[in-house]
Design a protein around this nucleic acid. Structure first.
Lengths: 169, 169
DNA sequence: TTGTATTTTCAATAATTAATGAAAATAAAA
DNA sequence: TTTTATTTTCATTAATTATTGAAAATACAA
C-alpha cells in the first residue's frame, strides 16, 4: 500500500469512529491529521489538507482543545497558532471516556437521584416497585462505572493497578 | 415527585443517553418503557405509550432484539407478540459494549492491520515513521481493549474477577 | 493610535439521520 | 382455501446535526 492511500484510509476511518463517540466526523479527521503529523500544524494547513471551511476548522480545533485531545504549540516568530495532537492511545481513550462520562453519565445519575423520591398514592404498588428496582440498579451501576473510570484514569501512576492492567494484555 | 413525572423523566433521559450510544432515541425510549414495565408489552401498547408510528415501533423493536436488549415472550392464546426487557444493568452494559465493539472497534482494527503494510519510496521517512508509530500504538491498544471487553463479559461467571470487580465498588 | 493578519462567531444552507404511514408480506383463524 | 389480524418494509417527509462563508472580534505590528 502507498503512503497516501494508507494516510487517507486512516483519516477516513478515524472520522467514522469519531462519529460514534459523540465527536463530529470533521473533528475526528482533524485529530487524525494531527496524529499523523510529526510537526505542529496551523489552521490553514488543516483546512487545506481536509478541504474544509475556515469556520469548520476553527470549531473543530476548539472542540478538540476542550476534549483535551490536542494542544497549542507556540512557535517563535510565527503569528499563526500551531497545534499538536495527544498521541498516546491510553491518554486519548481516558480523555474521551472522561469527557463522555461528564456529558452523559452524570446527567443520568442526577436524574436517577431525583427519581428515587417518588411518593405517589395514585399509582399502583407494582408500578412504583418496578420503577424503584430499575432506577436503583442502574444508579448503583452508573456510580460504580464512574468510580471505575476514575480508578483507570489514575491507574498509570499506580503500580498496583498497572499489575492488574497487565492481566488484560 | 409523582410516579408519572418520574416515569416520564426516566424515559426521556434514557432516550438522550441512547442517542450517545449509537442507539436511536426512540429505540432507547422503547427500551425504557419495557424496563419500567413489570409485564410484557405488545407493539400497540408501546406505540400508544410513546405516541410513535407503527413503522417506527416495528423498527425499534427489531433493533433492540438485534442488540440483545429485549426478548419476545410468548403468551398463550394471544396472537400479538409481547416483549420484555433485559433488566440487569451489568448485562445491558456488556451487551451494548459488545455490539458497539463489533460495529466500531473491529472495522478500525481491520483498517489498521491493512495499513501496517505501507511500502512506499516516494513518501518521506519521517512521514512513514509517524504513520507506523501511531497505527501500531492504536492497534495494540484496540486489540487489548477488545480482549479486556471479552474478559469483562465472562467476569460474572468467574470468582477471581468478581473479586477484582469488587475493588471498584 | 491605525492597519493588517488571524481567529471566532453565527445565520443561512446543506447533508445526514430518523419517523411516518400506506402498501406488501406474513401468520393465524375460519 | 379465504378472511382477518399483525408485522415489516420502504419511499416520502420531517427533524436534527454539520458545514459554510462572510462579518465581527481579536491580536499583533507599525
Amino acid at each position: 500500500m502507498k503512503y497516501n492511500e494508507a494516510r487517507h484510509k486512516f483519516i477516513q476511518s478515524w472520522g467514522t469512529l469519531g462519529s460514534s463517540w459523540g465527536i463530529s466526523k470533521t473533528m475526528a479527521q482533524v485529530h487524525a491529521v494531527l496524529l499523523l503529523s510529526s510537526k505542529a500544524l496551523n489552521q490553514d494547513e488543516i483546512m487545506d489538507t481536509l478541504q474544509i471551511s475556515r469556520g469548520n476548522a476553527s470549531m473543530s480545533l476548539k472542540s478538540l482543545m476542550e476534549w483535551g485531545l490536542i494542544y497549542k504549540e507556540f512557535i517563535p516568530g510565527e503569528r499563526k497558532e500551531y497545534y499538536i495532537a495527544e498521541k498516546d492511545a491510553w491518554r486519548i481513550a481516558t480523555q474521551v471516556a472522561q469527557e463522555r462520562s461528564k456529558r452523559e453519565l452524570l446527567p443520568v445519575i442526577h436524574m436517577l437521584d431525583q427519581i428515587k423520591e417518588v411518593k405517589d398514592t395514585t399509582a399502583t404498588k407494582s408500578d412504583i416497585k418496578e420503577l424503584q428496582n430499575v432506577t436503583n440498579d442502574i444508579l448503583s451501576f452508573a456510580k460504580r462505572s464512574d468510580k471505575m473510570l476514575s480508578t483507570f484514569v489514575k491507574a498509570e501512576k499506580n503500580t498496583f493497578f498497572n499489575k492488574i492492567l497487565k492481566l488484560f494484555k
